[in-house]
């Protein structure tokens, strides 16, 4: 007991000493801490909303406490919530995997290219989609996919085939959403891998060349294994977001088109539609809680798997 108290006193002293000496550093970090508190940590505490019947007057922490009632409501109306969960997982699962595959491929190929101007020009073009908004992507999509005036249907009909109903057939939208995400993100994500590759020790490659290894062998036996830590870290970080639907993507591309909701309604758009637009907080708040919890559990779980596989690759 006494020991613990002494230890406590010691750490307290250390803290106060550190604050006395380094107070300017604490001050510098304060605005950022406050911002994280207001816009990230208090919303976590705000998940308490699942246990109450939210009213505007009562607010987040003063509305009537109803315990697990919202979950009852949620389970009795779960069709749409389950649909939203399914859509979010399907789209994000393929996004995470395919964006990584395309980005790594691009980075590896870029590394094989010697011409500087070629690299510069193609990189500039490949990054660009990252820097436009989903609304802009939405209008761009119209020039391709509009059912009457789009260039895709124009080409299809000129070949004598039936036009495709892009904006009324929901089942086309899983691949479309995934395609647009890859289009927008893969080129930019490839910089991170490319940056990692340029940092590798060239002596590995020199030795491999001396031993007569082909380029392809160098890619599969040196580049990809060395990239694994970067791939794993980025993968672990994205797993936490697997239940976080991108609302701006859906709004920009489909405008919440009711005909497409079957496959495009994700958890975030579901919360937006039910709670923010229509004021039905019960099921939205329940969805919100499991979105946060499951995302967290997934990160912990995948980190645990990675740790068992190789300690060094784990996040923590």
């Amino acid at each position: 007991m006494n020991n613990i108290r002494v230890d406590n006193m010691k750490t307290k002293k250390k803290w106060s000493k550190s604050i006395k000496e380094n107070w300017p550093l604490y001050v510098l970090s304060l605005p950022g801490l406050i911002a994280l508190l207001l816009f990230s940590y208090l919303p976590m505490a705000g998940l308490y909303i699942v246990f109450e019947r939210y009213t505007y007057q009562g607010g987040l922490f003063g509305s009537e406490f109803v315990g697990l009632k919202n979950f009852e409501f949620f389970f009795s109306n779960m069709d749409n919530a389950i649909r939203a969960t399914r859509n979010t997982i399907v789209v994000n699962f393929f996004n995470i995997i395919l964006i990584t595959v395309v980005a790594v491929t691009m980075a590896v190929m870029m590394n094989e290219i010697r011409s500087k101007w070629f690299k510069k020009i193609t990189q500039s073009v490949m990054f660009f989609p990252h820097f436009i908004s989903w609304v802009v992507v939405g209008t761009i999509a119209i020039t391709f996919l509009d059912e009457k005036k789009g260039i895709v249907n124009g080409t299809i009909t000129s070949l004598g085939l039936d036009p495709i109903a892009w904006y009324s057939n929901p089942w086309l939208w899983w691949p479309l959403l995934i395609f647009f995400s890859i289009w927008k993100a893969a080129g930019f994500n490839s910089i991170i891998y490319f940056a990692a590759i340029t940092g590798f020790d060239p002596s590995y490659y020199e030795a491999a060349t001396v031993d007569g290894a082909s380029k392809w062998q160098q890619v599969t036996k040196i580049t990809v294994p060395l990239l694994m830590p970067t791939i794993t870290i980025l993968f672990l970080l994205s797993v936490g977001g697997i239940l976080a639907g991108d609302i701006t993507q859906i709004l920009g591309l489909t405008n919440l088109n009711p005909m497409l909701l079957e496959t495009t309604d994700n958890i975030t758009t579901f919360v937006y539609r039910t709670a923010i637009q229509n004021g039905q907080f019960e099921s939205a708040s329940a969805v919100q809680l499991y979105q946060s919890l499951v995302g967290f559990i997934l990160v912990m779980f995948s980190n645990w798997v990675v740790k068992r596989y190789d300690e060094e690759y784990a996040l923590f």
């Binding site: 970090s29 950022g32 801490l33 994280l36 207001l38 816009f39 990230s40 940590y41 208090l42 919303p43 976590m44 505490a45 705000g46 998940l47 909303i49 939210y54 505007y56 607010g59 987040l60 970080l237 936490g240 976080a244 609302i247 975030t268 919360v271 937006y272 709670a275 923010i276 907080f281 939205a284 708040s285 919100q288 979105q291 946060s292 995302g295 967290f296 990160v299």
Partner: peptide, 25 residues
Amino acid sequence: LSFVAWFTMVFSGGLLPWYILTTKY
């Protein structure tokens, strides 16, 4: 500080509490 920032990448309160806090509070 690094942990506090990092944690927000793996866990989030989601849209609903964020929206209510931001607009109302």
